[in-house]
Design a protein around this nucleic acid. Structure first.
Length: 482
RNA sequence: GGUCCCAUCGACUAGGGGUUAGGUCGUCACUCUUUCACAGUGAAAACACGGGUUCGAAUCCCGUUGGGACCGCCA
């Protein structure tokens, strides 16, 4: 494989307070591509919308991403020589290039208020026309502009999109894309508050930060021509672009809050393991191809295998069932001690004595096979912590009160009373002893014991339940029914 | 509505001129385990449609249809 050490990619989120699943995948693909090529992964904070500022969002973002194993070579946390990495700290830079654009007549001042523009759009809609800026300030004379400026009228700076041209570019995932300039809006580049819009800022930053590959969501694809026009006007090279398809709701619309959780933090809190989440997200829209049938990959393996060319060109539905399956699989195969550590918080609120690690671990290992995610732990611990077994179902009561059941309980109690510490192995011996002595076997033997001990017809392996309950409790519960 | 993107089982996908169109999740059945689950085996389940190109198209081209994204002084 040819390593291109010059690759520089960036993840450029706006700090909204949480990480969207789609953003996570974009961040992941950037990270994997950087690692695969030996390039640099850069974090840049797109905080040019002052109205959407959220305190602590950046810290949370870096922390969450770091937790998942996605880290950066340059960014707010580690710095770098292409900073600052907050766009809000780069205002002077944007202004400078904006003036440059103005001078080259590639941009112009416009003085309409948001209200006026609103009116314009409404009218256009009414007439069934395309809503876009009608260019009314395009041909303002220098005198008019100067006069307005002197009067202190608020202004924005707009991109002067040339007429009757075609902008063409090649996307690494989608292929060649062409768009007529006539349908491209004279995009605002600099807002009246002096902040740049995304379109201006991302072009300038990507160039200045020497980004070689832009990997981002497909929703950006229609604004690429605007960006290309800016690159061209400034005399800059356009980076390679890869627009990754969207992650979808079950109804195939863009993944949204309304139809389930979209925040990475939500999934982490529910007890999806980070390895599973990463693995699953990576496989949404990407796969190693070449007939590879394994679906389980560590971050290292993903880094080795990740190729942009193997990214799917169509959107992918976020399938929680499959995520659950994958997470369960990770849970079942996880190192017991590490799993215990991760699980401890989820035992809070249960009656399990978490100060006894050994005991908690036994319970965890007994129930892990049932867990799609760690927050399901509490619903499975009850049988280990209850002081009294309550059976309400009349059919079950009938089973447990049967003569054979009582016989079994009595014999089992006397067998167990001689035992010092009750283990799963000892229980197995004793129950077969009970079978020999009483002659009761099969369902008649096992079912009543399970019922008496847990109150339920099914659950984890009985011997391990017995070991976890301990001698005292087992005997106590059995005595209830004799 | 305009522009752009997309199209293999219900979902994620492999395959990219000649395949019985493969795998995974989910569903169903059976086996195993004297429970449920796990595991194992098996089944149902797809190339959107129509034209080309070709000896031959799921695969290449065009069109249709369908779906999606975008059309903000948000990113």
């Amino acid at each position: 494989m040819t390593k291109n050490n010059n690759v520089r990619v960036r993840f450029a989120p706006s700090p909204t307070g949480y990480i969207h699943i789609g953003s996570l995948r974009t961040a992941l693909f950037n990270f994997l591509y950087a690692r695969n090529t030996g390039g640099k992964n850069i974090l840049r904070i797109e905080d040019t919308d002052q109205s959407r500022k959220v305190d602590g969002a950046v810290d949370n973002l870096i922390k969450s991403l770091g937790l998942l194993g996605i880290d950066f070579d340059e960014g707010p946390a580690q710095g770098g020589d292409k900073g600052p990495y907050y766009q809000s700290e780069r205002l002077a830079i944007y202004r400078k290039y904006c003036d440059d654009l103005l001078e080259k007549k590639a941009a112009y001042y416009a003085f309409e208020t948001p209200e006026v523009l609103d009116e314009m759009r409404k009218l256009q809609q009414l007439e069934g026309r395309q809503t876009m800026y009608d260019g009314r300030a395009r041909d303002l004379s220098e005198e008019e502009v100067k006069e307005n400026l002197n009067k202190g009228i608020p202004y924005v700076i707009r991109l002067k999109v040339p007429k009757d041209e075609e902008v063409k570019f090649e996307d690494l995932i989608k292929g060649v894309i062409k768009i007529e300039t006539n349908i491209i809006d004279d995009q605002i580049l600099l807002k009246s508050d002096g902040f740049p819009t995304y379109h201006l800022a991302n072009v300038i930053d990507d160039h200045l930060m020497e980004i070689t590959h832009i990997i981002r969501g497909e929703e950006w694809i229609t604004s690429v021509p605007k960006h290309i026009l800016i690159y061209k006007a400034l005399g800059w090279d356009v980076p390679a672009m890869a627009h990754v398809p969207l992650i979808l709701n079950p109804d195939k619309t863009k993944l949204s809050k309304r139809q389930g959780d979209v925040a990475v933090e939500d999934y982490l809190n529910k007890g999806y393991l980070k390895e599973a989440l990463i693995n699953f997200i990576a496989m949404l829209g990407w796969n190693p191809g070449e007939g590879e049938e394994n679906e389980f990959f560590s971050m290292e393996e993903l880094s080795e295998k990740f190729l942009l060319e193997k990214v799917q060109s169509s959107g992918a539905v976020f399938n929680v069932d499959k995520l659950n399956w994958m997470n369960n699989s990770y849970i079942k195969n996880y190192d017991p001690d590490k799993l215990l550590e991760l699980s401890l918080p989820y035992f809070k609120g249960t009656d399990v004595d978490v100060t006894d690690n050994d005991h908690t671990k036994k319970i965890l290992l007994a129930i892990r096979v049932y867990l799609n995610k760690l927050d399901e732990i509490p619903e499975h611990t009850k049988i280990f912590t209850q002081d009294k077994v309550v059976i309400e179902d009349v059919n079950l009561l009938e089973i447990i009160k049967a003569d054979t059941s009582v016989t079994v309980f009595k014999e089992l109690i006397s067998q167990l009373e001689s035992v010092e510490t009750l283990t799963a192995e000892i229980y197995k011996d004793k129950i077969s002893e009970v079978q020999k002595v009483t002659g009761v076997k099969g369902k008649l033997l096992f079912k009543p014991v399970r019922l008496a001990l847990t109150g339920s017809e099914n659950g984890p392996d009985l011997p391990s339940i017995v070991e976890i309950l301990g001698k005292e409790k087992v005997i106590k519960f059995l005595k209830e029914y004799i």
